[in-house]
Write a protein that binds this DNA or RNA. Sequence first.
DNA 1: AAAAAACCTTGGCCTATGTCAATAAAATGC
DNA 2: GCATTTTATTGACATAGGCCAAGGTTTTTT
Lengths: 212, 212
Amino acid sequence: MDRLRDIAIFSHLSDTQLEKLKKISSVKKYRAKEILFYEGDEPVYLHVLLQGTLKVYKTNHKGQQIFLHQFYPGGLVAELAHFETIPYPATAEFMSDSEVLRIDYKALEKDFFKNPDISFEIIKSLIAKHKILIDVIQKEVILTAEAKVAKFLLENEELFKTLKNTQVASILNLTPETLSRTLSKFKASGLIEVGDEHHIRIVNRDRLQEML
Amino acid sequence: MDRLRDIAIFSHLSDTQLEKLKKISSVKKYRAKEILFYEGDEPVYLHVLLQGTLKVYKTNHKGQQIFLHQFYPGGLVAELAHFETIPYPATAEFMSDSEVLRIDYKALEKDFFKNPDISFEIIKSLIAKHKILIDVIQKEVILTAEAKVAKFLLENEELFKTLKNTQVASILNLTPETLSRTLSKFKASGLIEVGDEHHIRIVNRDRLQEML
DNA sequence: AAAAAACCTTGGCCTATGTCAATAAAATGC
DNA sequence: GCATTTTATTGACATAGGCCAAGGTTTTTT
């Protein structure tokens, strides 16, 4: 269980403290598409993603998923809900087979929260989430579909090569149709090109940038 | 300057610490409609609102304000930007004549951040902001115009009496036209009533609730 | 390699909300 | 209390982006 030491939030703990932590936590495996928690559930454990990917989304009035964020290994999941003991504000679903460290929250709070290193790590984690939420707002409320796609192209040119368009569309909370039409428009105005292998190449970075 | 003691984040400090704090901070007055900072500005001070109201908004592609949040006295403004030394992610504008405590951030960091009480208060403040952002997402991305109005009615029945409809509309990021039409619809279906004095009264709380 | 499934593209249509404009009503100033 | 400015209401119209359907591709399964 030296994996605990690799997790940022616990990296400064002493061996004795790690031992204690081991006692109040356990590892659980999940398969792709399983749900870690639903919006509205009461939190019991603090989860740390050890392996795999986890997406977090809210559901709107028409039942569509509004993608908020994707977690990678090391991520501390949903600490807000714990601190405030409020229900989870979103749903978390595994995108691939994954492993999660489950920590008994109450015990953690009792034994570890006086530790200034831990509270500093928690501040860091909260700030990271804060940024994510600001980005979500930026993406969902401020940007048009075109701007979303332009931004994603500029920031994730590589990802476009590996992800399917439906996946990109769902990250951007757009329909595949809209994404397809937007990309066609960009091609037509010479902002991007499609080589063989169907890979997209950005031709005019500056003009893409201007769309934001 | 005993007002410092009334501010939650500093309430646990000793007299000596408060003295130190006084040295690195100053009070500045602003008039309604003045700007505390613009989106994109580099932060220098940590601001605490002492008096008045401050609204925070982002601007979308068409130059409209997207209202994010309103601060009341005691609020710690924009700590995220400081921790991460990133530019402010939104614009802050005073809604009434106000007073702000400006704290030299670098000095604060040096002298006070080892203090566990302070870091706990910062965690609390971050969590509060986190909640606000989740609410913004809820409001802007998940809810329809009808649901926004229903929610606002349920949660702020009193405010409807004091605020003008344009003000409510701008809090909800709706046009006054849409707000007016939505309220008419609610009246027509007997969810609300308008008495004399133009005050709105909720008639059927449950059915309003269902719209969320 | 054939069949099935998943994905992409394109067209047509729909809906929620914004925009513009005109008028009515209310609030404010003098 | 009248005149002016600010708000509220209503109608007609515009628009972005979703929804549905159909045809063509690509990928996966067998």
